[in-house]
């Protein structure tokens, strides 16, 4: 039996926080993948800074607790140096679509074979509820006391346009569905992105709203335009896979089937290369 994925560290998320649903789904997904033959030691995780990042401390998996916004950059470096790793980058909406937007888009552009799980709670929870790049207009927080005057990004259309080859949306209160999405994302070869709708009970408690609006996608939309329409539907928050494509992955285009960690030339080999004609 697989060992416990918990660390025993005191959990400091608020009672009812959507992050619990994500943590449990991740544990369950990895458990199922290991049961089906994946090596637990091949999983590696990273994250940015924010409430989402605490998941790093609650998961007994190797990796690095990164800088705010930079988790997905760090994840790419981890993957490139050892392509055998299954790298999961956890990001918040402020983290992955604000401070670190460039890394999110470029990871998708490169079809880097990693998974980004976006904890979308629609605000900056840990820093006491300021508006985020995904907050709706009118959102009132400490930095926008009169209400946000910006329009939000739509994460899924953004990621589709950037070239993500697997794009899905889950809901922290639908843990079984979310688990399935995470398994599919980790099995996908290429950049996989899951936007997880995650209520913030302290600053953006949208449980009721989400429960009312969520609707499961029945099939994967056949065109990108249709996927974007569904992802932006004002009346429904569609859950499921919006796009799944088999496309060449960055590390294989860079070095084929080599593994730089295992195949690195040793000192004598380097001397030979240096003095070769």
């Amino acid at each position: 039996m697989m060992r416990d994925l918990g660390t025993g560290k005191e959990n400091t998320w608020c009672t009812g926080c959507g992050n619990f649903g994500i943590l449990n789904a991740v544990k369950k997904a990895i458990g199922e993948l290991v049961e089906n033959g994946s090596k637990l030691s091949d999983f590696a995780i990273t994250c940015g800074i924010g409430c989402h990042g605490k998941i790093f401390d609650y998961l007994a998996l190797s990796g690095i607790y990164g800088l705010h916004g930079r988790g997905t950059a760090t994840a790419q470096g981890m993957k490139l140096a050892n392509p055998a790793l299954k790298v999961i980058s956890f990001g918040g909406d402020g983290d992955s679509l604000g401070e670190g937007l460039e890394h999110t888009l470029f990871a998708a552009k490169r079809n880097m074979d990693i998974t980004l799980i976006l904890h979308n709670n629609g605000n900056y929870g840990l820093t006491t509820g300021q508006f985020s790049p995904l907050s709706e207009p009118g959102y009132k927080g400490l930095s926008t006391p009169l209400g946000s005057i910006e329009k939000p990004f739509r994460a899924i259309p953004l990621l589709l346009e950037a070239g993500a080859s697997f794009v899905a949306r889950g809901f922290s209160a639908r843990p079984d569905h979310l688990t399935e999405l995470i398994i599919a994302a980790l099995n996908h070869k290429g950049f996989s992105f899951i936007e997880v709708m995650q209520p913030c009970v302290s600053y953006n408690n949208n449980y009721a709203y989400l429960n009312q609006k969520v609707k499961l996608l029945e099939v994967i939309p056949t065109t990108q335009a249709h996927a974007i329409d569904l992802a932006s539907d004002p009346d429904h928050v569609y859950l499921g896979v919006f796009s799944r494509k088999n496309l060449p992955v960055y590390h294989e285009l860079l070095y084929g089937s080599a593994n730089p960690q295992k195949d690195r030339p040793d000192y004598l080999h380097r001397q030979d290369i240096l003095h070769a004609k």
């Binding site: 930079r70 470096g77 460039e102």
Partner: peptide, 21 residues
């Protein structure tokens, strides 16, 4: 990389995976 910030953070990721970077 897409920026110096990306370069430096990717580099540290590669270090975590054992690459001399």
């Amino acid at each position: 990389a897409e920026s110096e910030l990306a370069a430096a953070n990717m580099a540290i990721g590669s270090v975590v995976s054992g690459a001399r970077t």
